[in-house]
Design a protein around this nucleic acid. Sequence first.
DNA 1: CAGGAGATATAGAACGTTTCTATGGCCATC
DNA 2: GATGGCCATAGAAACGTTCTATATCTCCTG
Lengths: 292, 292
Amino acid sequence: MAINYEWYKVFYWAAKTGSLSQAAKSLYLTQPSVSHAIKQLEESFGVALFYRTSKGVDLTPEGSVLYAYIEQSQILITLAEEKMAALKNLDSGELRIGGSDSLFKHYVLPYLEQFHERHPGVKLHLNHGTTPEVITFLKEGRIDLGVVRMPIVDPQLQITESFQLRDCFVAGARYAELKDQVLSLDALLQYPIILFSRNSRARMTITELFQSYGYSIKPEIEVGSVDLLIEFARRGLGISYVTREFVSRELEEGSLFEVRLDVSLPPSRVGILTMRNMPLSSAARAFIQLVR
Amino acid sequence: MAINYEWYKVFYWAAKTGSLSQAAKSLYLTQPSVSHAIKQLEESFGVALFYRTSKGVDLTPEGSVLYAYIEQSQILITLAEEKMAALKNLDSGELRIGGSDSLFKHYVLPYLEQFHERHPGVKLHLNHGTTPEVITFLKEGRIDLGVVRMPIVDPQLQITESFQLRDCFVAGARYAELKDQVLSLDALLQYPIILFSRNSRARMTITELFQSYGYSIKPEIEVGSVDLLIEFARRGLGISYVTREFVSRELEEGSLFEVRLDVSLPPSRVGILTMRNMPLSSAARAFIQLVR
DNA sequence: CAGGAGATATAGAACGTTTCTATGGCCATC
DNA sequence: GATGGCCATAGAAACGTTCTATATCTCCTG
């Protein structure tokens, strides 16, 4: 006869309490059910597991041997169930996010702080990379979600659009004369331009914009981080193309000002990427909920 | 929803094989059954356990956590089942027997040898004691079976009668003149008698026999072991009252001879005692089978 | 690009097994 | 001798697993 693992649960409680009636209570069953389950277990092994006494039941030597194993097994299952509950309640687990450094710093960080405050048991892993790298991480299962600039077109990905970002050109005190002007693209190109290095979405966007107007934008300086973009502009090395939301502090304190143009720069959104058709972890679900 | 421990078995195999179809084969189920079980487990936890891919299934991070526990648990259960099979097949386990030293030496030993040869994995424990002690051991669960002289009357005990023993008086060369005689009880009492110490069944039996004929038997010497009983008789210190089966070697080689009497001494049987209403271990069952 | 192979998901019916109630027997205790 | 607690048994009912049949998706192949 095949053994039903449920019987082990019954056996465990019967042995632990020394009473079929008690076991029945613990398991919210009736005593005959427990009696029946034990009987089937005994028949399966062809060995008696309990001595029936007037006070309850005692393990036979064979029953004791079985109990030694089953007790451990049941304890592990109990631990597993507690652990799963902890995972679901976000008392443990982990959240792995991919994205660019600048998005992390300016956009994800406040949410992460909030998330961590609410769920201190969840470990956070941040993997920075370019948008294609983030998508690869996602497809390889190395991260739970990616935070990148829109637009992204990929049928495998589930995209949740979030915050809107507007890019703009900014300059420092050195070009103070531009403060009150509205420049044409043509006029802007007379100044030294600082752009983010090639493989970024912002760079592609602005290049395409100039092309669509028949111009070609060629940066004087290329840098690899948003921080340098800002720093170079402040020091007057040129006019930087940045995301306005990332320089809000500098704009407020006046160390940078926006160079207005006579064309509008297309806004873009931050998208949260997850794998379509792949279940999300509780932590990832909770984080997306928070961001939305 | 309450978790059915059978689902863990399904989960284990699904995770182990990385395929619901494979798990179904291993468990002799159909694929939809496995799919259903996993689904219920996931619903119980409120967490996805597997990523479904075109090639099969992969554990989610949460599923991996669960698997770490469940794998151990299932391995323990497998070990338990193997151990129980070994116990039943008498590849392991133990057999605890209580009885008197003399019965062990002359009666139980050959059977034990045979048993041990057949089931070398079964550990043997011998506890010697008087008949009342053996019965106490039995009732306390310290031994599986007792080997004692009949008769025993105890409603709690299950008694299997076995070999017949006949007691007799034996003497050594010193009393060679008795070899061809048939003595009356009266005549026997003229000789020095050697008896086993008080609290033995044999002693009680012979005392009662003499009393029933109106005599009183008073030993010259009392000893505490059958070996001494034999040794003293051989050295001519008196006539010993022994179990004939225990001195068969001495009778054959002629170092002792039986002193015949004109009354017949009542035979007694060896009884194998077990607890009534208590299941026997496989080893005990096998041993009793062997002895009968 | 169409089609096949193989994977999982879903729906609904059938089957089997657990679970229950009711009862009896046993033992210890009062 | 009565009472209460314990386990075993019997039979019925309800529940849940398991099945067959089918759908959907992906990957691989001709």
